[in-house]
Amino acid sequence: MREITLARQLGEVALAIAIAPLFTGWIAQCRAWMQNRSAPPLLQPYRMLRKLFQKDVALATEASPLFRATPYVLFGTMVLAAAIIPSLATDLPFAQAADAIALIGLFATARVFQSLAAMDIGTAFGTMGARREMMVGFLAEPALLMVMFNAFLLYGSTALPSLVDGYAAHPALIDPSVIFAAIAFLMVLLAENARIPIDNPATHLELTMIHEAMLLEYSARHLALMEWASSLKLFNYACVGFALFFPWGIATHGVDGTGTLLLAIVALLGKLAVAGAVLALIESISAKLRLFRAPEYLAIAFLLAVLGLLVHLLLGANTHA
């Protein structure tokens, strides 16, 4: 049994790595259609990654070992994060060692390394990107933690698989605090994944970049890994969102069989398709916030999550210990 579970766990991680660029490609397609243009093919991110892996590395002479190691660290933390998020099933051996707080810690580790690497070469843009990333990050983390605490109050655990199992046990549970938490989570997702309204992933303005600025000095396979890690981060966030708010289809504890697994995969793809389209729509109708409004935006996310907590406590709704 344990071998099967372990195999399934590894399979889930492999699937996450494999389809994260597909999710990014789908969002790019939706964005293209909303800009009244024909879309690049769905598999475009894969072609980009393949091409990048084949190119020569152009490294700045000032690059330190940290700069060269960071793409691997980033990719590694995102893969590890994928291992503890129940995208397909809740039977995750790795998740026993880490809960949602640890997940946030993984994201924080990635952020720190990315910022350090951006400052490594010493260009002004890298440092600006790092500084802004830290500003967004230090406000987004508490908001995300509050969302997690909302879930804790509802289901009594911060381990994501337990949350999904808890939901499966009480599927009719609709708590108003969930709505607040969901909106807060969406806002944090947009901020943390460098999406409009916080950052423009398609921008050509070097002075406005946050995420892109930290990638300017990378090339070839390092760039490929960084881009892949970004796709994985978005994928992970999406899966966390599904686990917290739309866990239908995820194979819960004790439920086995290829049938449920296939259902889980189909459900996941369907949810990703809808989520991608919604994300693209939000990006297409919004403008980017002035940088100093980003803290306000994240403060609202934090506030909404706290409001969710308060609503839950004041209404005295059912808790599941």
Binding site: A32, R37, S38, A39, P40, P41, Q44, R47, A58, H204, E206, M209, E212, L215, L216, E217, Y218, S219, L223
Partner: peptide, 15 residues
């Protein structure tokens, strides 16, 4: 629609 043909303009020469 250059992007539809899979071609895009990038900010950094390293890309």
């Amino acid at each position: 629609n250059l992007e539809g043909a899979g071609i895009k303009f990038v900010a950094s020469p390293r890309h």
